[in-house]
Computed example of a mutant assay.
Amino acid sequence: MKFVALAFSCLLLLAMPASANDTRTFDAMVLLAKRGDAEAQYHVGMMHNNGIGTQQDRSQAFEWFQKSAAGNDPLGAYKLGCYYDGQGAGIVATDADQALKYKLVSARAGYARAQHDVALMYDRQGNSEEALKWWKTAADQGLPEALFSLSRAYSAGKGTPRDLSLSYAYFKLSKVAPARNVKEMASMLSKPELEKAEKLVAEWKPQPTALTLKAFSGFRAAEEHLKVAKNQVF
């Protein structure tokens, strides 16, 4: 029993610094954001959005995303687009035009998830060619959702001639379906088509941009930004 109590106490001690560090990171990031640092404004927005280092407050998050986007930070623009795309229910009215406007800023800067979202928006508008372009760009970075969407586009011939070989290759690369579904798709191809597809799969390598890697690193990116800012000051 004593061992259990001691172990629990140790777990509490291990947990406390992490929370304290989150709060210190938040406080330091707010100071940087108030000086007009657009990336810091994005991180403050995300910390409000997710309740990291501070209470969750999506109204505050939205305001910081607005400032970040105005300062030309592509991730701030993406999150602002997300709020206009329905994530900000109760805070800001859904606005498809504003959502596309801000997500396009991030997509053009190289963020894979923004590229995928933009593709979905164009697809809903019936602009299959533009949707395919952005799905291809996001898929090249290895985003599973984009690889799957690209597979469906080639299967249906949306925005491109129908190509079951490419559809199979991107479906397999997406890794979003059971192996039996992959085998089922393979059985629909001729031997030359399957060989072409498997060659593409074997040679394919994701090429995520620095922006995508930063976005996916989450809180670590915030901590790294603070280190860089501190070194620049000193």
Rank of each mutant, 00 (worst) to 15 (best):
L14Q: 08
F8N: 01
Q56F: 01
F62T: 07
N50Q: 13
W64H: 01
Q66K: 14
G53Q: 06
P74S: 10
N21E: 11
A28S: 14
T23S: 07
A40F: 09
F65E: 04
T54M: 06
D57Y: 02
A7N: 05
K79C: 10
A20Y: 12
A33G: 09
L32T: 10
N72E: 13
V44R: 07
L31E: 14
Q56V: 06
T25A: 09
S9F: 12
H43I: 10
M29E: 02
G45D: 14
L6K: 12
L14F: 12
L31I: 11
L12V: 10
L31M: 13
Q56Y: 04
K79H: 15
W64C: 10
G45S: 11
L13H: 02
Y42G: 13
L31F: 10
D22W: 10
Q56D: 01
A70E: 15
G71I: 00
Y42P: 12
H43V: 06
H43S: 14
D27Y: 01
G51V: 06
A18D: 07
Y42L: 13
Q41H: 12
F26C: 03
N72P: 00
Q55S: 14
S9T: 14
S19R: 13
A77Y: 04
Y42R: 13
P74K: 08
A15Q: 07
Q41P: 11
S19D: 05
F62V: 03
F8M: 14
Y78H: 12
G36L: 13
G71L: 02
L75V: 07
H48A: 04
Q55M: 09
Y42A: 13
E39D: 08
A18M: 08
T54G: 00
L31R: 12
K67L: 10
G71C: 02
I52L: 10
S59F: 07
A69N: 11
G51A: 10
A69H: 04
T23A: 13
Q56S: 11
V30F: 07
S59P: 02
N49G: 02
M29G: 00
